[in-house]
Design a protein around this nucleic acid. Structure first.
Lengths: 111, 111
DNA sequence: TCAATATATCAATGATAGTTGATGTATTGA
DNA sequence: TCAATACATCAACTATCATTGATATATTGA
């Protein structure tokens, strides 16, 4: 009995490397904050630095990680470097993880 | 303009700690394999050890991590300890991450 | 070419995480 | 109580990672 047919077929076993790779980006709170901030539109590094209240090298480092995982795109315009979300689906996934996480916590705390 | 109304409201900013917490479990390939294996039903530790071809202490360690993140439930029955997925949604999320990851890779490789 | 601004990189440090082999603990049956 | 089985924990090692401060690179305008 198939309960859910809404998903395209994917060979999960052969994708786990990629999943772990992307998952790593979702395992750090600062990167998540940056990612969500970029969800509101393309931004320069210095804008992110101000918003996040993090040091510029640290922001650059996390952006590099997000770039390595292909989660953001980069574009230079004069002095400024703009970062943007590569695929909006990652925001949805973060939202689902937030739901799941809060539900799991709520369930635990009710015991 | 609200584009997507299908999500329940969640205060993302206040959930990022939990998201990072759960995300950490999705950042290791061995844990992902264990998690997906448990997606097929409740299993004992020794069964997982055989399926994964990993050492028993290593499997126990990862199960402990998954427990810490509330992603699995445990139940002892005599000599055996059974683990099961706490919330099936995590499987869906892994599947979405797999889609996203493969798409991102495909996009990159086409340049 | 020089100064100023934006961003990236480097070196170093401390913390965390994955792995392994040995050992401990719990449960059951004899 | 003893042996056997299943699982957890521990100690130790290594690798990875987040963070910081200093420095390098790139772009622009004067």
């Amino acid at each position: 009995m198939r309960v859910k047919g809404r998903e395209k077929p994917v060979d999960l076993d052969h994708s786990l490397g990629i999943v772990a790779f992307v998952g790593k980006s979702l395992s750090d709170e600062n990167r998540l904050r940056i990612l969500l901030s970029l969800g509101n539109g393309k931004k320069t590094v210095s804008t992110i630095v101000e918003e996040m209240n993090l040091s510029q090298p640290l922001v650059s480092h996390h952006l590099k990680e997000l770039r390595r995982c292909l989660l953001v795109n980069v574009e230079r315009k004069g002095l400024f470097v703009y970062y943007e979300i590569a695929d909006e689906r990652v925001i949805d996934i973060v939202r689902e993880l937030a739901h799941l996480g809060t539900d799991l916590l709520a369930k635990r705390d009710s015991f």
